[in-house]
Nucleic acid binder design. Structure first.
Length: 242
DNA sequence: CCCCAGGGAATTC
DNA sequence: GAATTCCATGGG
């Protein structure tokens, strides 16, 4: 199957990515916090790790991860990397702290909203009658959380096996010829779910991370088809004149 | 100077 | 539903 083949090509070339990238982890620069077990990935198991992933997922909306790292550092320096402190911080102060990540007025609101959600889920989780389940619909009901951010949170913070579709993913499989263009998010998502299989989240986790890396290395806006490792399966790569 | 980055909401048809 | 427009900084 073509989806599995693409994964194998990318994994054999780029290797294990160990997302979600967190300050202190491999591939992340300039941070001294503990991070998640570089090169020996274990999913985040505590609340602070989860909350940091959620924060990063919001901050990286249409924004380079480099800018997000700058802001995560600033948030930590201000002792704001807890939902309680983000809720308590004045909106304009929070906005100024996260300024380097762009869209800072919108994102300041979003961080307050997901912080409230996080605390509320945590509180409900302690009640016996509550099933303790974060759902996609719950996340989508929050202002500022769309499908990709919701799926990123489900996958990387809570380890639910969902496939995250971002603009890189669409670009790659569109050029490869797997979609025509115009397909919706959920429709594209289904393409990546292998039939008759029950893969661990590791597959979804690593696959998405590999697609992001591959889009940065070769499948850029101006693609570098000549030496692209996916050339053998790619319509654009095969048609490229080089 | 230009374009781009691990989207999403609001508006309009 | 689909197409536009706005949000905004830092890096190449």
């Amino acid at each position: 199957m073509i989806i599995k083949r693409i994964f194998n090509i990318l994994f054999d070339l780029y290797g294990y990515q160990g997302w979600w990238p967190v300050p202190g982890s491999a591939g992340s620069k300039g941070f001294d916090s503990a991070g998640y077990h570089p090169g020996n990935y274990e999913p985040p198991q505590n609340k602070s790790e989860r909350f940091e992933i959620i924060t990063g997922a919001v901050l990286t909306q249409n924004t380079s991860w480099n800018n997000v790292e700058i802001v995560l550092r600033r948030i930590k320096d201000e002792n704001l990397i807890t939902p309680q402190s983000i809720i308590q911080a004045p909106l304009d102060m929070l906005a100024s702290i996260i300024r380097p990540s762009g869209y800072y007025n919108q994102k300041a609101k979003k961080l307050k909203i997901v912080s409230e959600f996080f605390l509320n889920e945590d509180r409900l989780d302690k009640e016996a009658a509550y099933d303790g389940r974060i759902t996609r619909d719950k996340l989508l009901s929050l202002w500022g959380i769309g499908r990709e951010t919701a799926d990123s949170i489900l996958l990387y913070a809570y380890h639910f096996p969902v496939f995250v579709i971002d603009s890189y993913t669409v670009r790659i499989i569109s050029r490869a010829g797997l979609i025509k263009g115009g397909e919706g998010y959920d429709e594209i998502q289904r393409i990546f779910i292998p039939e008759n299989s029950n893969p661990a989240d590791r597959y979804y986790n690593e696959y998405h991370a590999l697609l992001v890396l591959h889009a940065k290395r070769f499948c850029r806006k101006e693609p570098l088809c000549r030496r692209c490792p996916l050339k053998v399966i790619c319509r654009m790569g095969n048609a490229a004149a080089d």
